[in-house]
């Protein structure tokens, strides 16, 4: 379980957000939504201590990650898989090696075992045939899927998705949404999805956190979000006619 308590972050004089309090139960999928630049990705990077807050706590299974020493922090980070916005694949190695990368350093698996696990992981994202491809040969959607295969290779307890559908065509975005749901439903992984794609939110989320005006403006279940009449939330979720249509459904 992840608990965020009174988190505050600023860069220099610029306050990003403060008084952020959240609880993410095991197995849940939380979508963090908000306008571009409101600090969604910044919040995500606090969950595995890639960024340090000005004040507040992030408790991972009861331990405040910011109070741990660097070695312990790194162990906690291994509980997380992360799908980065730009996929963050290592461009000096091919697809197979990207997915195998954590296994080679953090396990004592044999080559056969590594091969089996990598192909299984690539199988989840339907990319077994791209194992030998260089990352430069992959399309944006394929990169996201390889990034996801790498994120789940160590069987993490939590997966964080940073704008998983941004820059993708609707069909590929839908595939990614289905994969996020698969991870949550099949493997019972707790997921945190940062997005401003409301279609994606409606597809994958159990709970929603809305960041606005430098604070956590709203937090609740998907159903509560549909019924909420909080003005800024309604304005955000119904910003386009398409969103109104799908929310209405």
């Amino acid at each position: 379980m992840i608990e965020i308590k009174n988190l505050k972050k600023s860069f220099g004089d610029l306050l990003i957000w403060e008084d952020v309090n959240l609880k993410i139960d095991d197995g849940d999928t939380l979508a963090i939504i908000g306008r571009s630049g409101c600090g969604k990705s910044v919040l995500l990077k606090h969950l595995n201590a890639l960024l340090t807050p000005d004040s507040g706590e992030v408790l991972i299974d009861g331990k405040n990650i910011f109070e741990l020493d660097y070695v312990s922090q790194r162990k906690v980070r291994q509980k997380f898989g992360v799908l980065f916005q730009g996929s963050a694949l290592f461009d000096s190695i091919n697809t197979f090696e990207n997915v195998a990368f954590p296994l080679r350093y953090f396990t004592k698996d044999s080559e056969e075992e590594i091969y089996r696990k990598v192909m299984r992981s690539l199988g989840y994202v339907n990319l077994e045939m791209a194992a030998d491809k260089e990352t430069s040969e992959l399309s944006g959607g394929m990169k996201k899927r390889v990034g996801l295969a790498r994120a789940i290779i160590l069987e993490p307890e939590y997966i964080m998705y940073d704008e998983p559908t941004s820059g993708l065509d609707p069909e590929t975005a839908e595939e990614i949404n289905e994969l996020i749901s698969l991870m949550s439903d099949e493997f019972d992984i707790t997921s945190i999805v940062v997005t401003h794609d409301m279609h994606s939110v409606l597809k994958v989320a159990d709970k929603v956190a809305y960041l606005n005006d430098q604070k956590l403006s709203w937090y609740g279940t998907l159903e509560e979000m549909r019924e909420s009449d909080q003005e800024d939330l309604v304005n955000f979720t119904t910003a386009s006619e398409y969103q109104v249509k799908i929310l209405g459904n």
Binding site: G86, A88, P102
Partner: peptide, 18 residues
């Protein structure tokens, strides 16, 4: 620099690498 701006260094740290 390329690794930094394309979040590859963040990816390393996220996996638990130093």
């Amino acid at each position: 620099g390329n690794m930094r701006v394309s979040e590859q260094i963040d990816a390393l740290e996220s996996m638990g690498f130093n």
